[in-house]
């Protein structure tokens, strides 16, 4: 959606958000967000068979407000549609909490970026006379995400596009690694079978290929 296609009122909102995103002076320093989390990793020899839930291995981080905000973002990034459920209905927001609460270096870096981005979303919503991001209309929320998605594409390294990109990666990846997400993306494996016969005839026909031997 380009800027000119946005409705008038939204366009004004959009311009303000762009201004907010560009004004880095107003941004608090990275380190003011949550020091390194308290827990330890699972070690080099974990139980591989056990099923793990977020919170099993290290304490989670999100406040109620953060959790609600991430739930909303989950469903903007992976909404329910005709064929598959939304990310929040699959608990992806809990996975995000598990991820940013983990003590490993890669996740600690994501923790800083994501907690900072969540605060920024609420602060900017505040400037638009809204209580927080969650209180914006769903149209406004979507528009903000569209702006951030464009920023993320334009410059891989620039905040807050970096925040949205990482959030999108984690939510979409978290979604497609559930059985429901796997079904939606067309993965049909992970089933024990007596034989494997290669692609069915209709696939070969579509590709204009002869079946093997």
């Amino acid at each position: 959606m380009s800027e000119s296609e946005l409705p008038r009122i939204s366009r004004r909102t959009t311009l303000k958000w762009i201004a907010g995103a560009s004004g880095s002076a107003a941004l608090p320093a990275m380190d003011s967000f949550a020091a390194v989390p308290a827990g330890t990793g699972y070690g080099p020899d974990p139980d591989l068979i056990k099923s793990y839930q977020p919170g099993d291995l290290w304490p989670l981080t999100f406040s109620d407000g953060q959790r609600e905000l991430v739930r909303v973002l989950c469903d903007i990034i992976m909404p329910e549609d005709e064929t598959s459920p939304s990310a929040s209905s699959l608990g992806v927001h809990d996975f995000i909490d598990e991820w940013i609460s983990s003590p490993y270096p890669g996740q600690v870096a994501d923790r800083k970026l994501i907690l900072k981005g969540l605060k920024w979303l609420d602060d900017e919503a505040g400037k638009q006379k809204s209580k927080n991001f969650v209180s914006l209309s769903s149209t406004q929320q979507l528009e903000v995400c569209q702006i951030l998605a464009i920023m993320a594409k334009k410059d891989r390294r620039k905040y807050p596009g970096t925040f949205f990109r990482r959030m999108r990666d984690l939510v979409a990846g978290g979604y497609y690694t559930t059985p429901e997400g796997m079904k939606d993306i067309g993965y049909r494996g992970n089933v024990a079978m007596p034989e494997w016969n290669g692609p069915p005839a209709e696939v070969l026909e579509k590709l204009g290929l002869e079946p093997e031997g």
């Binding site: 959606m1 990034i77 979507l142 569209q146 993320a152 939606d184 067309g186």
Partner: peptide
């Protein structure tokens, strides 16, 4: 998508 894909667009792209 104009930006990085998300939402319905991403689900369609993925399929």
């Amino acid at each position: 998508a104009e930006g990085i894909p998300f939402g319905r667009q991403l689900k369609e792209d993925a399929r």
